[in-house]
Design a protein around this nucleic acid. Structure first.
Length: 440
DNA sequence: CATAGAAGTGTGATCCTCTTCGTGA
DNA sequence: GTCACGAAGAGGATCACACTTCTAT
């Protein structure tokens, strides 16, 4: 029985395959590979003569790995204590906010993908057994983690395109796209779905194009989600040029689809309303929109209204403890944020995520030299710096290609004749012994 | 040391799920 | 204008193949 799920947005049913031992199985030499379907589709309880399929790959493992390292590297920012109870994170005065007093981090300082998305990982709730010492390929098999939900993969690609700033932060890294996915996963774990009245968001953001995915935004059936949601209304007057990592495309963030009900809530979330400046809703809604936009907005408006009614119902049924975040509409609970002041205040400060160590003589990416500079036994965070560098170096050198265990077999396989991708017998195939003699 | 059987290798075909779009009620 | 349904396409995972090498007995 396999309980692993896909990480690429698919949901796989539990399979109950009674599989013969590989040693006793005889490979069914079917003439057509399509026999797979006929063998498995008739019944949930199938007897297969084939090897069980290897579990689907899970892309989130590197995310977890990075999360653990970053929490070690930047405990002030990615403190695991914030993650023990995700709800804590949504409180206006939690430790994260305390770090910067009245200021929030300007998002542009998040220099690489390993950083910004880690805020949400519930490290404290999960034993670190998933973090293996060797650098795992991101698509190697992993076990289910609470931080994984398969909507990530889908929504990731959406959020990515709006994150224009990210593309300017190229690293010397040949598997960038895969890394991007990790980042996006993390971003989405922060983003989640929005349950705010998104009329204005939809109107300005959707632009009438792109097939109306935004209609799903509020489809999260769990009433809790109304309080632990987030997502940034990109269209709300930021003009899209604001370099926030909160990327939205085509109407916003998707809901948590196919999320394991037992774990989905464990994502620490940031209520975007609490970190957002107030927007004059009436103003935005009164702004005349283009016709196409208006029609698209209308379409969603109904859905949003429907869902908001349902959510309001469900939220009312919930006990107050489970609903600790105040409604966004409540005045006075919003975090007022003067972005200009924030940017000014941080303009002369080094990024906490910067590749460059402040005060370091060693420029660039000479990790060894930089490691040598670090006093590992000082109290001033040398271990932390070392951890960060180790992590970055590891990430940089991580292999995303298939690992060849036996090079000679690869060579042989390359030489082997094929027909439509399959190995075929050599024209004058001989027995192994004879073949070896020939080679000798 | 000999033997049997498992492991592993690359690539095209196939399967499967999800998304997008068109059509009709 | 809305909704449901189905087709088409995209994208990713897996399978099948022959043969050599590795490993356990």
């Amino acid at each position: 029985m396999s309980s692993c799920f896909s990480g690429s947005g698919r949901t796989y049913a539990f399979e109950l395959d009674i599989v013969k031992s590989p040693s006793t199985s005889t490979r069914t030499s079917t003439s057509s590979p399509s026999s797979t379907l006929s063998e498995s589709s008739n019944s949930g309880l199938a007897i297969s003569t084939r090897k069980p399929r290897t579990p689907r790959k899970r892309p989130n493992q590197t995310y977890n790995e990075a999360a653990a390292l970053l929490s070690t590297a930047y405990p002030n920012i990615f403190s695991t204590k914030n993650f023990t109870n995700p709800r804590k994170f949504t409180k206006p005065h939690d430790s994260f906010l305390d770090q910067s007093a009245e200021l929030l981090l300007p998002f542009r300082v998040i220099d690489d993908g390993s950083s910004g998305f880690l805020i949400g990982e519930p490290i404290g709730e999960k034993p670190s057994s998933q973090f293996e010492p060797k650098a795992l390929i991101s698509f190697e098999k992993m076990c289910q983690s609470p931080g994984e939900f398969d909507s990530q993969a889908n929504s990731n690609s959406n959020s990515m395109e709006m994150c224009g700033s990210y593309h300017h932060q190229d690293e010397d890294f040949d598997a960038e796209s895969i890394l991007d996915e990790e980042i996006e996963e993390g971003i989405d774990s922060i983003m989640g779905s929005m349950n705010v009245d998104m009329d204005s968001v939809d109107e300005s953001n959707n632009g009438g194009g792109g097939g109306g995915r935004g209609g799903q935004m509020n489809s999260n059936p769990n009433p809790n989600s109304s309080n632990s949601c987030y997502g940034y209304p990109m269209g709300l007057g930021f003009g899209g040029k604001f370099e926030f990592g909160f990327g939205l495309r085509r109407g916003g963030v998707r809901p948590l689809r196919h999320v394991d009900d037992g774990n989905w809530w464990s994502f620490p979330t940031v209520d975007v309303l609490e970190i957002s400046p107030r927007f004059n809703k009436s103003q935005s809604s009164s702004t005349p929109a283009p016709a196409s936009v208006a029609s698209a907005g209308k379409k969603k408006k109904k859905k949003v209204e429907k869902l908001s009614v349902l959510e309001a119902k469900a939220a009312a049924e919930l006990p107050k403890e489970t609903n600790p975040i105040p409604k966004a509409e409540e005045p006075g609970l919003m975090l007022k944020l003067d972005y200009e002041d924030v940017l000014n205040a941080w303009s002369d400060k080094a990024s906490p995520f910067s590749e460059e160590m402040p005060g370091s003589d060693v420029p660039g990416n000479d990790v060894s030299a930089r490691l040598a500079q670090i006093d590992l036994f000082s109290d001033a965070g040398g271990l932390r710096e070392a951890s960060v560098l180790r992590y970055k170096e590891k990430r940089r050198t991580r292999l995303f290609s298939k690992k060849i265990r036996y090079q000679v077999r690869k060579v042989n396989a390359d030489r082997r004749p094929r027909m439509k991708g399959r190995f075929v017998r050599r024209p004058h195939s001989s027995t192994n012994g004879q073949r070896q003699k020939e080679i000798a």
